[in-house]
């Protein structure tokens, strides 16, 4: 069992303990009922989201992204990196090694920071597999649109901060 699963189990145990302390088994049952209600709302959306996530993975190869980025620099590098994150897939255990290899290949701090940001902020699989099924298309898309212009901005500012602290 890995650490994140252990932390998660610990949190659930604390929450169940708190619920029991507040109202006994009744309260725990009521909490589980809430969980089932959320599940009922999202299960079908989740199936579609996972299907999309899988298909995007086979449609966009990760090594292509590394190739696009290469050791680019300046505005062009930041802009490419800012939107390469849109199609990057997989959890951090997949994406961080890719970013690390791009960084090691000579990409500047600006593009690397822009890429890190867009991976987390603009990931299409993240939007389609998680945010939309759980929160609905309206609020998930609004957040996505607002964040569209942020990665290049953060890339520029981050490169400046990097200069200052390094």
């Amino acid at each position: 069992m890995d650490l994140s699963l252990a932390i998660l189990i610990g949190m659930v145990a604390v929450a169940i303990g708190l619920a029991f302390w507040r109202g006994g088994w009744r309260q725990i049952l009521a909490g589980l009922k809430e969980a089932v209600l959320t599940f009922k709302t999202v299960w079908f959306r989740l199936i579609l989201g996972f299907t999309l996530g899988g298909l995007i993975q086979v449609l966009i190869p990760g090594d292509l992204i590394a190739e696009w980025l290469g050791p680019t620099s300046g505005i062009k590098g930041i802009l490419i990196a800012s939107y390469a994150g849109v199609v990057m897939t997989g959890g951090p255990y997949v994406s961080l090694p890719i970013v690390a290899s791009i960084y090691a290949a000579g990409a500047g701090p600006g593009p690397v920071i822009a890429l890190l940001t867009s991976m987390n902020l603009l990931s299409l699989p993240g939007l389609l597999t998680w945010a939309i099924p759980f929160l609905g298309a309206k609020i998930a898309l609004t957040r996505y649109i607002v964040c569209l212009f942020l990665p290049p901005l953060i890339g520029f500012v981050g490169a400046g901060v990097f200069e200052l602290i390094s």
């Binding site: 619920a19 589980l32 809430e34 298909l55």
Partner: peptide, 26 residues
Amino acid sequence: RAGSLFESVWLRLILGFILGGMIRLL
């Protein structure tokens, strides 16, 4: 790949639902 993604998260997802339900209540 969709299947293997699901396989890797289903247990955590169930725990997530339970935690969400408890928080909603608490």
